[in-house]
Design a protein around this nucleic acid. Structure first.
Length: 405
RNA sequence: GGAAGGUUAGCGAAGUGGUCAAACGCGUCUGACUGUAAAUCAGAUCCUUAGGGUUCAGUGGUUCAAAUCCACUACCUUCCA
């Protein structure tokens, strides 16, 4: 199947600036495209990963990818969809994030992928020149009518800093066109307005210089949402991150096991290379196995096969009640005897003793597979089996407790 | 710069002197039923040494008593410049 049709079938295609031309472009000779990621955190979240998978598909069809790490734009902050201004990151933070993000990106795209940083061309650029060259082409009324500024505008806190974001992203596109003949920008649908701004800017530059019209193109993938319309990627403990020190592999796997049945088919088509018909058949026949496979494959992609097998086994063992080998472990300071509620707080299973108490009163806590019914129970050292204590909160949260050595 | 209004829990939103640790909705957590899903039903949802303690943007004041009244400060909204 051809490139465009494949993306379309797998659900990656959401908005296109020029449908016919893009189909031709993607199905034709290799082109160069880019995907921008702002290093606003020191890891990627699942949404970035989704966009990167699209990039990977394009690469596998022979197209050339550029990944732009927005070292400059991260210092401004994209106002899109935000109701509050993002707290501004320090330059040191951005530097640190850039490094982390870059390392992660490398795991998901082809080895020889070009990675650029827009700080390279923004640093030292003259403000007056920039405004004369780029600023003139932006109509404020048009910008404000764009959805992406609406929320900030309604809340009244839209600043000029944030308005500048769009100019920067638009300018990036034209720079990459000049330097690398990049003609297509891809991104999440939240980036639509910014992508279109880049496409427009490219056209205006052309008009001005009277050059032969070379059009830039934009393509977005849908936002990764759950069946109930909520954004995917929130777990009980916060955002679902890609790097394992922010969301450990076990939690990552669990997050996918716990998705709605209705989402399994879509996630399989996004994150695996299995044929669509086969996916459909699988989901129809046995949704539970399909879900397990999906969680495994996604974990494998992000954390590697070895880890994926480990967490899969850990999860199955835990839920079937067998071994505890690969269960998440918390280390705490040694004690002789401790109140259950204090233990729960110390292990960060609950955030307060009150919560711990309520958990016990609600019949939601087991230690070494036995229900704890008394919130004043003391736990002594002797209850550790082979140096570890197994704590279960609710149905799904299992934690192994060990002493610091 | 001027005028008016606002700021209450994770979020939305009631509350205009005591009966307010603060209605209600959403979210979250837990229990039952299941399949580690969904739906449904039930309970919980500031902290606690379980006696109490600390909350309604901040600071001070009035009062026996303040989310509620007064003053100032900060931030936000709308209108005018």
């Amino acid at each position: 199947m051809k490139c465009f049709e494949t993306l379309k079938q797998r659900g990656y295609v959401y908005q296109l600036t020029h449908e016919e031309e893009i189909i031709k472009l993607l199905n034709g000779d290799p082109i160069t495209f880019y995907l921008g990621i702002d290093p606003t955190a020191d890891s990627l979240h699942i949404g970035h990963f989704f966009a990167l998978s699209m990039a990977r598909w394009l690469q596998d069809f022979g197209h050339n990818a550029i990944i732009l790490i927005g070292g400059a734009t991260a210092l401004i902050g994209d106002p899109t969809g935000k109701s509050d201004m993002r707290s501004m990151l320090t330059k040191e933070q951005v530097e640190h994030n850039k490094k982390e993000v870059k390392d992660l990106v490398k795991r998901f795209v082809k080895e020889d992928t070009l990675i650029v940083d827009n700080a390279d061309w923004f640093k030292g650029r003259d403000y007056v020149d920039f405004m004369r060259e780029v600023g003139v082409h932006f109509n404020v009324k048009k910008m404000l009518s764009a959805d992406c500024y609406k929320k900030r505008l309604e809340n009244g806190g839209l600043t000029f800093l944030e308005m500048g974001y769009m100019l920067m992203q638009a300018f990036d596109f034209t720079i990459l066109k000049d330097r690398h003949n990049c003609v297509l920008q891809i991104g999440g649908s939240d980036q639509w307005a910014n992508i279109v701004a880049g496409v427009d800017l490219g056209r205006k530059f052309n008009n001005k210089e009277g050059k032969e019209v070379e059009v830039l193109f934009g393509l977005t993938c849908p936002l990764l949402v759950k069946a109930d319309g909520e954004k995917m990627g929130k777990t009980a403990s916060g955002t679902l991150w890609v790097s394992r020190n922010k969301t450990d592999c076990y939690d990552f796997y669990q997050a996918f096991i716990n998705v709605f049945d209705e989402d399994v088919e879509r996630l399989l088509s996004f994150f695996t290379r299995i044929e669509i018909d086969e996916i459909k058949a699988m989901c129809e026949k046995d949704i539970i196995s399909a879900k397990k496979l999906m969680a495994f494959e996604v974990t494998k992609l992000v954390h590697g096969e070895e880890e994926a097998i480990k967490v899969k086994e850990a999860s199955e063992a835990v839920f079937s009640g067998a071994n505890t080998e690969n269960m998440p472990t918390v280390f705490i300071a040694p004690f002789e005897e401790i109140l259950v509620t204090e233990l729960l707080v110390a292990t960060e299973i609950t955030t307060s003793k009150g919560e711990a108490r309520r958990l016990i009163e609600g019949n939601g806590l087991s230690i070494n597979k036995e229900k704890v019914t008394n919130a004043d129970k003391m736990i002594s050292k002797s209850e550790f089996i082979d140096g570890q204590l197994l704590i279960q909160k609710g149905k799904k949260t299992f934690v192994k407790v060990k002493f610091n050595s």
